[in-house]
Simulated scan of single mutants.
Amino acid sequence: MGALPTFDTALAASVLDWWHDAGVDLLVEEEPRDWMAAEPVRPIAFTPPAPTMASATPAMHGGVVALAPAQPTLLPDTLEAFLAWRLSDAAPETAWDGISLAATGPVDAKLMVLVDCPDRDDGDAGQILSGAPGRLFDRMLAAIGQSRETVHIASVCARRPLAGRAPAGLEARLAEIALHHVGLVAPRGLLLLGNAASRAVLGTELISARGHSHELDHKNGKSRAIASFHPRFLIEKPMAKAESWKDLQMLMGDMRG
Rank of each mutant, 00 (worst) to 15 (best):
P231A: 08
A103D: 12
G194M: 10
A166Q: 05
P5G: 01
L162Y: 08
R173Y: 02
V115R: 15
L179Q: 11
Q249G: 02
S228P: 07
A166M: 07
A163E: 05
E80M: 01
W18V: 07
D116N: 15
L193P: 03
G257K: 05
K241Q: 14
E29P: 02
L83R: 09
P118H: 06
E31P: 00
M250L: 06
E236T: 00
L16K: 09
L101A: 04
W245R: 14
P231R: 08
N220M: 08
S55Y: 08
A154K: 01
G98N: 15
A13M: 10
K246S: 10
P167Q: 12
L216M: 15
D17N: 11
R120I: 01
T73R: 05
I153P: 04
W96H: 08
A102G: 13
P161H: 03
R148P: 02
D97V: 15
L129K: 04
V107R: 07
W18A: 11
A54Q: 01
E80T: 03
S147Y: 05
G253H: 11
A3M: 02
L216G: 13
L162F: 11
L141F: 05
T47I: 09
G134W: 14
S55F: 09
H61L: 13
Q249P: 01
M255R: 06
I99P: 03
H212G: 02
G145P: 12
Q249R: 06
L129V: 11
R210H: 08
G105V: 09
W18T: 13
P92L: 10
E31V: 13
L136T: 11
C117F: 06
A45C: 07
A158D: 00
G189M: 04
